[in-house]
Design a protein around this nucleic acid. Sequence first.
DNA 1: GAGCTGGTCAACACAGTGTCGAGACGTTTG
DNA 2: CAAACGTCTCGACACTGTGTTGACCAGCTC
Lengths: 219, 219
Amino acid sequence: MTETPAKDSIRPRRGRRDSRPSGDDRERAILATAERLLGGRALDEISIDDLARGAGISRPTFYFYFASKEAVLLSLIDRVVAEADAGSEGRLEELPADPTAHWRSTIDAFFATFRAHRAVTLAAARAHGTNREVQELWARVMENWIRRATAAITAERTRGAAPEGPPARDLAIALTSMNERVLLATFAADQPSLAEPEAVNTLLHIWLNAIYHPPTPPH
Amino acid sequence: MTETPAKDSIRPRRGRRDSRPSGDDRERAILATAERLLGGRALDEISIDDLARGAGISRPTFYFYFASKEAVLLSLIDRVVAEADAGSEGRLEELPADPTAHWRSTIDAFFATFRAHRAVTLAAARAHGTNREVQELWARVMENWIRRATAAITAERTRGAAPEGPPARDLAIALTSMNERVLLATFAADQPSLAEPEAVNTLLHIWLNAIYHPPTPPH
DNA sequence: GAGCTGGTCAACACAGTGTCGAGACGTTTG
DNA sequence: CAAACGTCTCGACACTGTGTTGACCAGCTC
């Protein structure tokens, strides 16, 4: 086991085993089937046979394209992340003329990114506890948001618009974690959760107060 | 299937099938084994055979005591919740003389509750996505914290110490969600996470500012 | 037309779950 | 005290899902 082909392994592609040509359709069919089925049930309630049949192939053939169900989910997440990154290219980012608008658009973007692929997002969240690779990929995505928020907070502080307070990164981590959890609960329509419009407003209130008010205690 | 015995079903005990006497030790042995093993790996990496052997019984005998692995986890969570409720009986709660101290102690209590059974907490979080019963139980626990926070915020507002702003419950949900996510990341030592001392301080800052500052936007 | 490469699948080995039926052991009760 | 009953135990089975092996076909290349 654990053979090391070492040949043609320029890039460790998540999906197909090695070469390039067609049969690509099959791969896409598997991904499409997975995303479709994830709309209805969790990944562990979907068998590899379901995925294979959905793509019109047999179970062993599935393994020609993906090493496991989890690898399929990883591919799906990759695509979402890539789409999101592409979409956020054109973000303003450098316009703190109206800070409130800036932060609102950041939070909106966070929701928009994951709303476009709600099923994949929820599946990723579920797999987060189980699967190390999903964990790492998700961590990279969050790290991205955290870094942007940290930079923005720091910028506001050096500009004099925001007071000093807890380390910018600590603040960014806590606030982004909040966004993540609230978003997940909202998408899953969990018991104690906020519907989307209120969610964004409430989160925005918390972000603004956390960033723009000094840590002065109440009377 | 789904027979309804209706006899002796006064209380739907989570654990043993029906009667009362000893053999209790076995049940406790299973629970102890489960908590021990959860310290090292996730629930789906633990087989029923592991649980049974750990408790010194055979696999079929396990089913005499619990309907599934998940039922064991549920029992474990029940115990943590019961302990936590018992422990929070003596909480001050009615002393807003020093609001900062009040909120700090609330956040500390949140961490302390789950730190005592870190492994069970993490297992519960992992199972949250998969298992409906865990979901409901966890929701009840969170609802509890949310209700207390909502009441406290409302009290501070009517007392005039806190300004109006987003609905108290919305605020409580978002802030409690933040605590939950940050706590889980901290316990799991996830990638972007806060170590405990900073975590509590940062969370406290966010709570205080969210509650005691009006939603006035920055300049 | 021999040989390579991409693609396919029947059949197998295996791990884990849940159930059934046969008991052992202790306690009422006739 | 023996028969009947409830608790408790487990060997053996059926089933579901995963991952692998080995044979095979089609097309392309020299």
